[in-house]
Amino acid sequence: MSYQPHKGFFILLLLLLFGAGSIGCRNLEQRPVMKIGYMNCNSEAETMARFKPLTAYLSEQLGIDFEVVPVDTQDFEERFAAGEFAFGHSNSLLYIMLKETQQAQLIATEKRGQYGARTAGAIISKKGSGITTLEDLKGKRMLYGPQLAPSGYLAQYDLMLQVGLDPEVDLAYYAIPHGSFKHEKVVYGVYFGEYDVAAAPALDLELMIAEGRVTADDFNIIAQSEIIPYCTFSAARSVPNDLVVKFRKALLSLTPETTVDYNGERIRVLDSAWITGFDQLTDGDYDPIRRMAKNANMPPYQEF
């Protein structure tokens, strides 16, 4: 007697084939692809390592395949204007530049360190150097951070101008370190006596103290700037508002426990990006940077 397969068996087989086919089709469906430009703090490798998991999380939340584009600080505005990436993660001064020249949309501000979504710049000298006031800076050797660093250059430059000191005239000379880790080099420059004073971001000092590389008692804080927003996510003018809102919501809903699948591992998004969270600041919260940039004749308000 030959075996006669039941009619139901064929129907089930057909259904399975149809189901598998539709799943396969779904997998082949193309998700939109967009790019996020991340400002390099130290190196491309570091930027990729920090922000790839966060980007994977954003892709997961928004259903868009985001790609990470590491961007050097000085190229950021030009590449953003050229449309190389629709979203940008940059320092707050770059955000102002993008806002003023490209009408970028503010998304959210990164939280890191004791100030949360804000930070500040400080002018430091070595304890025992006798340099304790801004007046003492006259004729001294000073080390600054990179020129577009709001809390490592702009804030200190502005602080000096506010008390009538012109860094271009009143200092013996000033310099900006080469290569990566400029902010740390600035702190070490003073720590090891190569320079008399330095423009140190409060956050970098804080991190170096937390890691035990220096102590709070090693330095005099000669002056401190007002607080200004920290690194910022923004979007190009062309990005639809509902996508900006979704992007913001995804960032604001991040908690220290949020994880993402990345390279076969389940990892914590915020930890991997060295961030403690995001806040929604208003564009008006960035006005202190605008004032500083105008006072220091820096972009986007530079006049020649």
Partner: peptide
């Protein structure tokens, strides 16, 4: 009013 120094001391 040396707030930055105070915060760094807190951190330490």
């Amino acid at each position: 009013r040396e707030y930055a120094a105070a915060l760094l001391k807190v951190q330490e």
